[in-house]
């Protein structure tokens, strides 16, 4: 590897950009792409790009054999994100648990009484309105969004933005009654059954969770399942 390549790669990673590194296993030639922009000696073929896209989506490197060359593709993705709406009791254990599972966590709550440093000592709470904050944070295919306020004034605007995004997981606190009323409100906003199917609620895996920490476990579990076993999560 060239020193310039490793430095460009480190720069990309420090700036939260996603990068792919292609290395020819025999010659040592390499090409680095940072958010699609490539530099290097390997001319990327459609076969390489296709393998790279799968590698990127699955977060896992691989070797592609093409034109008699063996090209090793490495993936450098920024951490996945979890955006929590509501600085509530469940959020307190959810923040450290999600971090341990590798997520870059954001908590949004405009209500000053909830978002205190005593309750959340090691995270800065985003105090904007949930829709403004989410519009700015731009959930993508590597982002999970969970609404936990139980207050439609806060949860609904967040869900509205989340449903229009490519977030891979959307979870909302609330039982059947709450969900039914939410569907009515979201229908008025122009959403339909396909959108409602994306919302996991009551949030979390059905493991009999009672305490806030147990509910947080069930949420992290469900996000993990959606990520790695999407076919099962959808069932």
């Amino acid at each position: 590897m060239k020193l310039t390549t490793i430095k460009a790669l480190n720069d990309a990673r420090n700036n939260g950009k996603s990068a792919l590194l292609y290395s020819d296993l025999e010659s040592g030639a390499e090409t680095l792409t940072v958010e699609g922009e490539g530099t290097g000696d390997i001319e990327l073929t459609p076969a390489m790009r296709e393998a790279a896209e799968r590698a990127h989506n699955e977060d896992r490197g691989r070797v592609v054999e093409t034109d008699g060359r063996r090209i090793f593709i490495q993936v450098f993705n920024p951490p996945r994100r979890l955006i929590i709406v509501g600085a509530v009791h469940i959020s307190q254990p959810l923040v450290p648990m999600a971090r341990l599972a590798g997520y870059d966590v954001t908590v949004i709550d405009p209500r000053g009484a909830w978002a205190t440093p005593e309750r959340f000592p090691d995270i800065e709470i985003d105090s904007r309105w949930p829709d403004d904050a989410l519009e700015d944070l731009k959930p993508d295919t590597r982002t999970a969004v969970v609404t936990l306020t139980h207050d439609p004034k806060l949860d609904d605007p967040a869900l509205t933005v989340a449903l229009r995004s490519n977030a891979f997981y959307i979870g909302a606190l609330g039982g059947r009654k709450t969900a039914g009323k939410r569907r009515e409100r979201l229908t008025e906003e122009g959403f339909g059954p396909d959108d409602f199917a994306r919302i996991r609620g009551p949030v979390g895996l059905d493991i009999g969770a009672v305490s806030p920490a147990e509910i947080a476990v069930s949420i992290v579990g469900q996000i993990t399942e959606t990520l790695h076993r999407p076919e099962r999560a959808a069932a």
Binding site: R13, G61, F76
Partner: peptide, 11 residues
Amino acid sequence: MSDAQMLDHDD
């Protein structure tokens, strides 16, 4: 690869 491993790589 997990993010923990990536941090590891970073280093």
